[in-house]
Design a protein around this nucleic acid. Sequence first.
DNA 1: ACGATATGAATGAATG
DNA 2: CATTCATTCATATCGT
Lengths: 208, 208
Amino acid sequence: MEPHQQQNQQAANDIQDSSSGGSGKGSFLCRQSSTRWTPTTDQIRILKDLYYSNGVRSPNADQIQRISARLRQYGKIEGKNVFYWFQNHKARERQKKRFNTTDHHHHVPMQRPTSITLTNNKCPTNINPGSSTGVLTVGQIGNYGYGSITMEKSFRNCSISACGSNAASASESLSHNFGWVGIDPGYSPPYAFFEPKRFIDGIQEEGQ
Amino acid sequence: MEPHQQQNQQAANDIQDSSSGGSGKGSFLCRQSSTRWTPTTDQIRILKDLYYSNGVRSPNADQIQRISARLRQYGKIEGKNVFYWFQNHKARERQKKRFNTTDHHHHVPMQRPTSITLTNNKCPTNINPGSSTGVLTVGQIGNYGYGSITMEKSFRNCSISACGSNAASASESLSHNFGWVGIDPGYSPPYAFFEPKRFIDGIQEEGQ
DNA sequence: ACGATATGAATGAATG
DNA sequence: CATTCATTCATATCGT
């Protein structure tokens, strides 16, 4: 993100409203997919300000509305744009950090290398805490627990296959089984609607 | 959501299994590297059909079993996939509406007409309904016509051609729409198949 | 023009 | 059910 944002851009704006245009692109009938939202500098500035100065990471619906309403002054924008922006910004900051922690900053492709892409995420053995790339993290409004990037629960990375327990799951891959985490009979979550664990195969026991 | 259906579909994934028919094809071992389910177009079509035409929102374990069994003929799939699909689809439909609408539906104790209810079709560039590749379109079905299954996209190096034996599935797509898993086509109960309230709070047919 | 990168958008999978 | 995370696709943009 920081490396270089798109600095140019006309603030002007807002562009074509709908349909239209046909800017080149070759295909008409572009259904909204073309011309994805391109934030203006002002919008980006405000978004980053919210992100870094106000600690906003995952705004809820209400906040999103407010934010998008505010940003609308600077160009066309929708709620989902704001939503995705925060999602992406957060995810990418994290992702970038993940590569940077264990190793020195190298130029890692980190993106599908056009080849094998095993994408084997190395379980970050130790994420060095406190490397908040300039994040101020003031206050941390009402977020859930994550506020700072540093304390993210990245244990999720270890993913399903490895983390665990036995490698037994690897065996059934040829069948129709589910490499899904083993069920834990007897485990009844408080908020149990029915979890997928229940019906996966033939198990599908009673309703909890 | 659907403006561009992506991903290489169809299974065959499962690691390098037998490369029957895989032939040279450039690089083998492309292997999709993803452990997550990638629904085929047919599977998506059916799921949407269930969702929009049959009002299926939160199928219970039993329904999930049947649905997944039915979808299995179009590609690898498991119960949890169906479960998650409905969960996500429903959640996103709501969420999108939530932060995109100008109207705050805050719990107003009484019916106060003052609410704005802009209800503007926030749908960015609404796609004309009914574009869902010929699904039946019974009842009202909110918009969400985004079908665009025909759209072809650039795949990555890892082509999926070897995947085999589907492709034919596209043909029958228009016929058996109503042939729901265990139900006789022809009699399509609105929401008959799931019993009201299973073990959780009934949420199923609330809205639309 | 391409190729690489940055980033918007979408969605499967989980968790609370 | 809502929220969040991870992954991947699609495309705008920049560099050479």
